[in-house]
Write a protein that binds this DNA or RNA. Structure first.
Lengths: 337, 337
DNA sequence: CTGTTAGCGCCTTCAA
DNA sequence: TTGAAGGCGCTAACAG
């Protein structure tokens, strides 16, 4: 008998030779699929372990006509800045990684700068992934609609709009905005401002819900302040705003980051939160609790959102037809309001 | 001539048939490699564009014996919590995504719970990626050392230690700790505390540098408070600490998140920052600027770190031998100290 | 229960 | 300049 200890084992062919069986037997043993003698299977598995051999995933996938990977795309349509620095997206990414790993998929991360109309189709045609999760539709809803019409395994985190055909999972932003409005009213606030970029569909929905829950007189006086997503940019906007002498008594911010910017900028003008100004954020990122004062905010259930995104995507991969889902937000009252 | 408009084009074979040439010609045309008549090349490229055809990356990679993907691994050795919620890692991830995309690599994200000694080798043997970037060595330096001895395309973000053979890119944590110490001394602080988990090598180095820059009397009185990485856990530790009546006049926190926890917990005991207590963080995450008061912190150049990680990895992939690099930190003085 | 064989889609050597 | 053919490592009929 030959000494096989030193032969490198790079493929099932190598292992088959050493084991004295055919490649298909090795394949069956290692994939645990197909009928095979128990002892043969065990013997080959042990041999594989001894030689530190594992099936080549790429070849396996090529043969199976799949890739075993799901893309998570972050389109940077509106904000070219450090989108990935947004704690909300990051938490989402973490949970997605967990969910996908659990189902045996790899997570392919990509930030895309949408250019023209073909970026998504081109990405899909490259065949690198079996399905696509998009976090935030940005200003790309037309592109998404077009692609969704012929490509099924596509789910989007974000606001749902009637006119869009693609599959979305997202917080009910309108309801969230309404929660913020009612809370500020309860606090006796009536001179209100909304901080956020309403070109982003999610933020527009928050704003819309906010307005809709306000009595007419308060609604008419709401100031709409165009704040960007990144910490630096939103802080600058807030600082300018207060420096210009604006003095609302209640602010609803489109995100926790923006809310923290508002609080910081207010503090620099000696505006006391919450005595003189109530601030409500959106997201409930982990750091919201550590803001000073701790942030009152509209909580999005990120873990649930990630689970649903993966769940719906897998259904579509299995050929099922599934629809959009909205998740109810809740308000978390802390000390900033 | 047949009408080819409606035939699906799924492979170079299909396109070759339509173009009336051989598959190798199509391959050469689409990869822009090998000699080929200019007009033929252009004609085939146009045909491909018309039919929305792109080369199948998986098959290409199988043939070329590579994967075109780099893994970014987050070992959750010490902290099982939402590691991915740490803003520092997230910012790093964003920059890595940019750098890798630019060089034509996909980024495969995976959070791993290290179990036993084989997790990294097993991951590598699966052959899913061409190289591995590990963010944070956690408590896995033995595993890393073993793997690094036989697997070259491996780079680690984190503290460099003489005894470890693997390639690290990281901030000079010792120097960073010293910067914090000197700053607190300048502020006239002498009753100091360090908040952080010194089982994490990076944090241990920060602590070491902190102590080393202190005069003997101050050094001997430094309190070491074991704070965890996650916001909730570190906040709880800080709250308990102050509730127990501890009253240092200077705190150096192992991370910005921990520093924000300390500030929040202090505020709840009516300890004024910076009047009664100076707090210095580490990282300079985007939100540090928006902390209240804005955080004095030791800045890590994340963008540069990400660029270097990818650069060194690519060198190794090209067969070059390259060594570890330390990045000098700098102190950013804001209002918390 | 196991072996033989034909590809998955692509690249590349060799020959024309 | 182009074509034919072999094979990357694996799976799944189909035979035996």
């Amino acid at each position: 008998m030959t000494d096989h200890q030193n032969e490198p084992v790079r493929s099932i062919t190598d292992l088959a030779r050493i084991a004295g069986v055919s490649v298909s037997t090795v394949s069956r043993a290692l994939t645990s699929k197909g009928a095979l003698n128990k002892d043969t299977r065990r013997r080959i598995q042990e041999l594989a372990a001894q030689h530190g051999f594992q099936l080549n995933v790429a070849a396996q996938n090529l043969r199976l006509g799949r890739t075993g990977a799901i893309a998570v795309l972050l389109p940077l349509g509106h904000e070219r800045g450090q989108h990935l620095s947004d704690p909300f997206f990051m938490a989402m990414l973490g949970f997605l990684a967990d969910e996908l790993t659990e189902r045996g998929y790899d997570l392919l991360l990509s930030r895309v700068l949408p250019d023209g109309e073909d970026w998504l189709d081109a990405f899909i045609r490259a065949g690198r992934v079996d399905g696509v999760i998009i976090i935030g539709q940005s200003n790309q809803s037309a592109v998404l609609d077009r692609t969704a019409s012929h490509y099924r395994p596509l789910v989007i985190w974000g606001a749902h709009a009637e006119r869009n055909q693609y599959l979305t999972i997202g917080t009910d932003n309108v309801a969230g905005g309404a929660l913020a409005a009612r809370h500020l009213l309860e606090r006796g606030r009536g001179k209100l401002a909304f901080f956020g970029n309403v070109a982003v569909p999610e933020f527009a929905a928050r704003y819309e819900g906010f307005l809709s829950a306000l009595p007419a007189d308060a609604r008419d006086r709401v100031e709409l302040v165009h704040a960007h997503v990144t910490p630096e940019a939103s802080y600058r906007v807030a600082a300018d705003y207060f420096a210009a002498g604006r003095r609302p008594d209640g602010v609803f911010a489109a995100s926790d980051v923006t809310a923290m910017s508002v609080i910081t900028a207010a503090a620099e003008q000696d505006i006391r939160v919450p005595d003189q100004l109530s601030v409500v954020g959106f997201d409930d990122v982990p750091l919201a609790r550590l803001s000073n004062p701790p942030l009152t905010t509209i909580r999005q259930d990120i873990r649930r959102g990630a689970a649903l995104l993966v769940e719906q995507l897998c259904q579509r991969l299995a050929g099922e037809e599934v629809g959009s889902i909205q998740i109810a937000p809740e308000i978390v009252i802390r000390e900033s309001s």
